[in-house]
Design a protein around this nucleic acid. Structure first.
Length: 495
RNA sequence: GGCGCUAUGGUCAAGCGGCUAAGACGUCGCCCUCUCAAGGCGAAAUCAAGGGUUCGAUUCCCUUUAGCGCUACCA
């Protein structure tokens, strides 16, 4: 049961064209469809709209399917999984479209157009010049047999145009926009079959959605203006119209459509940066949909539970990477140690901090090192920078202020005590280091800061960083001592 | 140009005729703390403009403005 259908099984679809990297906006469209299907116990169909032969590639299709799977969205019918309404690639459905085209042609609802690109362009230009809207004026609407024979003799390959009825109000019932009315007089006879015999988007999408028994067409807002054309075809073919739901676009920071300029735009880029599916889904869901509560963090299960089309917003949303980072960080912290290490691995390898072939003690050490980053990163690609200090014994002071810390007169006392006591510690772990620091504090009667900060700077060159008690055991006695001595020497401090 | 959609803080947004106009991210401050992060507490910050309708408009209507989309033998 849902708000927009009377107990009829909900059948939604995601129908991308495989013409490039899978865009984050596409992922959101897919997510909303998936959520509605799962929420209502309906079906999600995955159809590939590959009629643009210039730009469609098999790699892109694979990329889309892989991204959907990675995000945790499965489909009930469609490419790869099959189903009773296939095939699910449009290029494999050409004979189906042909049948309906013949029907429209026979009924006079469509006609062959022999205009050449040049003629069309000429018409456009003259209309623009006359200050009119450039649209096809119906030159080939009523061709005589002789004219047709003539064009054929010239070897012209015709397109098929849909005969748009005049003076018709076209009502689009939209779940998110409400009722939107269009005037057919603003629509020129549009091409439904290209001269190479392949249908155009506006035509194929109608036949497919109808034949696949799609009940709800949820897609990006850019398609809203095309919907009246599609409605005309539904009617001409005697198909029942689905319920539409046009969700708003995702914009970049400067309020223009998301593009490369805005940073990562494809799902794959986010995957490679080490974002988590849960984080991306959660973030995308909140872009254009709001729960009926103050909750911000949603698992996929919770989203399915809470999602509803009537809480989908109409206004476009700006993609806010800071919020994505915040959400993703939440999920990073939730990972168990093993999963976090696996997430870190490719980035650690890329940074040259490991090979992936480590085992035994070395591997255990790496895991402990990586674990120190878990609370601090938003996505996995940030991990190497976060643990860099464990791999690099050569470093400079971050600034003069840091170096100055080592010149305080109490520093030699603190450091000498540390260097003397450190090797004596058995079982060097977090607690032991803490105990040792406390002992130094007591012995020197210094404030915590005067003990910790010089050690921190001497050990890392930095005034900021992870907890010292966690770092020392990972570095070990030898490296700790070596680093501290080197730093003091560099700062010209005598011990 | 025509048609269409949209308009609450910097961002995501709740609101669906009467509220001190939620909440979150970010920002800033305080607490915690060796530092950073996390966490806790708190602050600043919003109804695009102008007309109506109404006892009363953020909310309904109109106009303007702005952004976006469509207007392809792309999808």
């Amino acid at each position: 049961m849902c708000c927009c259908c009377n107990n009829e099984e909900v059948r939604v679809r995601f129908a991308p064209s495989p013409t490039g990297p899978f865009h984050i906006g596409g992922a959101r469209s897919a997510l909303f469809n998936w959520l509605l299907a799962r929420k209502t116990g309906g079906k999600l169909i995955l159809r590939i709209e590959d009629t643009d032969r210039e730009r469609s590639t098999p790699e892109s299709e694979e990329n889309i399917k892989a991204a959907l799977k990675w995000l945790g969205m499965d489909w009930d019918e469609g490419v790869d999984v099959g189903g009773p309404n296939g095939p699910y690639h449009q290029m494999e459905r050409l004979d189906i479209y042909k049948k309906y085209t013949d029907q429209l042609l026979a009924e006079g609802k469509a006609y062959y157009c022999y205009c050449t690109d040049e003629e069309l362009e000429e018409e456009r230009q003259s209309l623009i010049k006359a200050g009119k809207m450039p649209r096809y004026m119906g030159k080939c609407r009523n061709l005589t047999e002789e004219q047709i024979a003539q064009f054929k003799a010239e070897g012209r390959k015709p397109t098929v145009r849909f005969r748009v009825p005049a003076d018709k109000q076209i009502l689009v019932r939209d779940m998110v926009r409400g009722d939107v009315v269009f005037d057919s007089n603003n629509i020129g006879d549009f091409v439904i079959v290209k001269s190479d015999g392949i249908p155009t988007y506006n035509y194929a999408v109608v036949i497919d959605d109808a034949l696949m028994h799609i009940t709800h067409v949820i897609r990006a807002e850019e398609h809203l203006s095309n919907t009246p054309r599609q409605c005309l075809i539904y009617d001409a073919l005697g198909f029942k119209q689905p319920t539409f739901g046009h969700i708003s676009l995702i914009l970049g920071k400067d309020h223009t459509k998301m593009s490369k300029r805005h940073g990562a735009t494809s799902v794959d880029q986010y995957r490679q940066l080490g974002y988590l599916p849960a984080g991306i889904n959660n973030f995308l869901a909140l872009l254009g949909w709001a729960p009926n509560s103050e909750q911000e963090i949603f698992s996929m299960e919770e989203l399915v539970q809470e999602f509803s089309m009537d809480r989908v917003a109409k206004n476009p949303a700006v993609f806010d990477i800071d919020k994505l980072n915040w959400i993703n960080q939440h999920y990073m912290r939730q990972l168990d140690a093993e999963a976090f290490f696996e997430a870190a691995k490719p980035h650690m390898i890329a940074a040259g901090y490991m090979t992936g072939a480590e085992e035994g003690e070395k591997l255990a050490w790496l895991k402990r090192v990586v674990a120190t980053a878990q609370e601090h990163v938003s996505y996995a690609a940030q991990i190497p920078a976060c643990v860099e200090m464990y791999f690099n014994d050569e470093f400079d002071f971050e600034n003069e202020e840091a170096e100055a810390v080592l010149k305080a007169e109490t520093v030699p006392t603190v450091i000498n005590m540390l260097l003397e006591e450190l090797p004596k510690v058995e079982n060097l772990d977090n607690a032991a280091v803490k105990a040792l620091f406390k002992q130094i504090q007591k012995g020197t009667k210094l404030k915590g800061k005067d003990v910790f900060m010089p050690i921190r700077v001497a050990l890392t060159g930095n005034q900021h960083g992870p907890e010292l008690a966690a770092m020392v055991p990972l570095l070990g006695v030898e490296r700790t001592a070596k680093r501290i001595k080197a730093s003091l020497a560099k700062a010209g401090v005598e011990l």
